[in-house]
């Protein structure tokens, strides 16, 4: 073109039709297709099978021809003593791990006090590591330490002239072991978010407090803690959202005949009665799973609402 076009600004919205705009992005859509396909196949397609929870599923007749029974399985669930035992176990484990909620905060506060950055880095590297280990590894380490025949703790007890104990089969301490495992695995990783919050605090506050004669401890109580309180609140609320879930792999690996009644939780029951023993229990176990999913979705939505109504950024 020999003559340059005059510049004309077109301020009308939707200058091009929807089809044209979609076509203009065709290659961008193509990039997203693999991910979207995976999500549809493995996140949305299974939701159709939730229909099973409302019928007596018969694999020969299939999902749509099986007799519809309404809320029969949910009624059975709420009348089942096993249900209340599982709910009780789940809530007990969750509430006990809630008690360890301050652990990552304390770790972050301690790390923040360290002057030597090389030492701080070494400690951080070490405490983040367990987050990346599988539950199989964590449970195996527990066995090597606590098993009654070969465990290190029992070897030490015997060497000291004591009586050996079978920690792993002891109903009274199994929750304690579970909670300690979770803290060991998660405390370092959990401290990252608090370290970030502490790093964002205005250093001028500390200098002002120092001039006013505040001690180190007073600075932590009156500056650090109030400044990270919003983060603490968000993390606490998020944790409340997952109160009905436990770590399936951990509980499954730690279960044995003697502590089973303490560690019977929904996921383990669904796995043992649904996946392992064939299709007769599919409808009932689907109903249990659906009950759990609905409750945890509601908890997340409620907690998210609380977070956002307090002026903080929610997750959704």
């Amino acid at each position: 073109m020999a003559q340059a076009k005059p510049v004309v600004y077109d301020l009308r919205p939707h200058r091009r039709s929807l089809a044209q705009r979609i076509w203009a992005y065709k290659w961008t859509y193509l990039l997203g297709v693999p991910g979207m396909t995976l999500m549809i196949l493995f996140n949305y397609l299974p939701m159709g099978s939730l229909l099973m929870a409302f019928e007596d599923y018969d694999p020969w007749r299939g999902l749509f021809a099986s007799p519809f029974v309404g809320f029969k399985h949910f009624v059975r669930l709420f009348g089942d003593d096993k249900f209340y035992q599982m709910l009780g176990n789940t809530l007990t484990i969750s509430l006990l791990s809630l008690l360890t909620f301050p652990a990552p905060i304390i770790l972050a506060l301690l790390l923040n006090e360290v002057r030597s950055s090389a030492f701080k880095k070494t400690i951080q590297t070490t405490v983040y590591l367990p987050h990346f280990l599988s539950w199989t590894i964590v449970v195996s380490l527990t066995f090597f330490l606590l098993s009654s025949e070969q465990g290190l703790v029992n070897k030490i007890i015997i060497a000291a002239g004591g009586e050996k104990r079978s920690f792993l089969f002891d109903k009274s301490i199994i929750y304690f072991i579970i909670v300690v495992q979770s803290v060991w695995k998660g405390v370092g990783w959990g401290s990252i978010v608090y370290l970030a919050a502490i790093a964002g605090i205005d250093q001028g506050l500390y200098e002002a407090a120092k001039i006013d004669g505040a001690s180190k401890f007073q600075s932590i109580i009156h500056i650090t803690f109030p400044c990270i309180l919003p983060t603490v609140a968000v993390m606490l609320i998020l944790k409340m959202g997952s109160i009905i879930s436990v770590d399936f792999e951990q509980v499954l690996l730690m279960t044995n005949a003697l502590v089973k009644e303490k560690l019977d939780v929904f996921e383990v029951y669904i796995y043992e009665n649904g996946v392992k023993s064939g299709s007769t229990q599919f409808s009932y176990t689907t109903a249990i799973g659906m009950f759990k999913s609905v409750i945890s979705t509601m908890l997340v939505l409620i907690t998210n609402r609380i977070v956002s109504s307090n002026g903080m950024k929610g997750i959704i």
Partner: peptide, 26 residues
């Protein structure tokens, strides 16, 4: 076009899962 809707669908998978048995049957 459609970004918001796809975004919501992706976020929804964070919120709600079908559960072990439906996944197994799928």
């Amino acid at each position: 076009p459609g970004r918001k809707m796809i975004n919501r669908l992706v976020m929804f998978t964070m919120l709600f899962g079908a559960g072990m048995i439906p996944n197994f049957i799928n």
